[in-house]
């Protein structure tokens, strides 16, 4: 079985898991987004077909919620918190530093697909502001000059 086929089997499994649940479509998309890092056109079409909902409804949902990405993402997802506490404590400076370091803007992915840079409105670590989260790890009380060494930890 080639890779593409295998993926399709997996996708169907995910869809079937939530099929019986009322309103399960968002859960389906979440799991696919988690597993594959993004929602491909094929995946969205399959979800629409299997759940018997109009494709536009699936596409609407996929573009409405920020948790979903329609483009492949980098191996490491960097979320810069821009909640109020982080904002007050200079979170946007950390974002600018990351943008300069990585040569991409928020919402973009580096060419070699290593990092995706995003902003998030509060991850609830306000006491440690300014905070960023790389994959599962949160880093608090940041300063611009600490950014390069943190990036080195996630290669």
């Amino acid at each position: 079985m080639n890779d593409k086929m295998k993926r399709k089997v997996d996708l169907e499994k995910v869809i079937n898991k939530y099929k019986a649940e009322k309103g399960g479509i968002i859960s389906v998309l979440q799991e696919i987004n988690r597993e594959y890092g993004y929602l491909s056109e094929d995946a969205l079409k399959l979800v629409a077909k299997k759940l018997d909902v109009p494709l536009i409804q699936v596409y609407s949902i996929a573009t409405f919620y920020t948790a979903f990405s329609l483009k492949p993402r980098g191996r490491h997802l960097i979320n810069v918190c821009l909640g109020t506490a982080c904002f007050v404590k200079g979170g946007n400076r950390i974002l600018e530093k990351l943008e300069r370091e990585l040569g991409i803007k928020a919402g973009e992915t580096t060419k070699e697909l290593r990092y995706s840079l995003d902003t998030v409105h509060c991850i609830g670590c306000c006491s440690l502001a300014p905070v960023i989260r790389i994959d599962e790890d949160a880093y608090g009380r940041l300063k611009q000059e600490k950014v390069p060494e943190i990036l080195k930890k996630h290669k």
């Binding site: 109009p54 536009i56 409804q57 596409y59 609407s60 573009t63 409405f64």
Partner: peptide, 14 residues
């Protein structure tokens, strides 16, 4: 959606 029942178009982004 309601009259033609085709559901071709919809709102995207927010």
């Amino acid at each position: 959606q309601e009259i033609i029942e085709a559901s071709v178009i919809g709102f995207i982004n927010r």
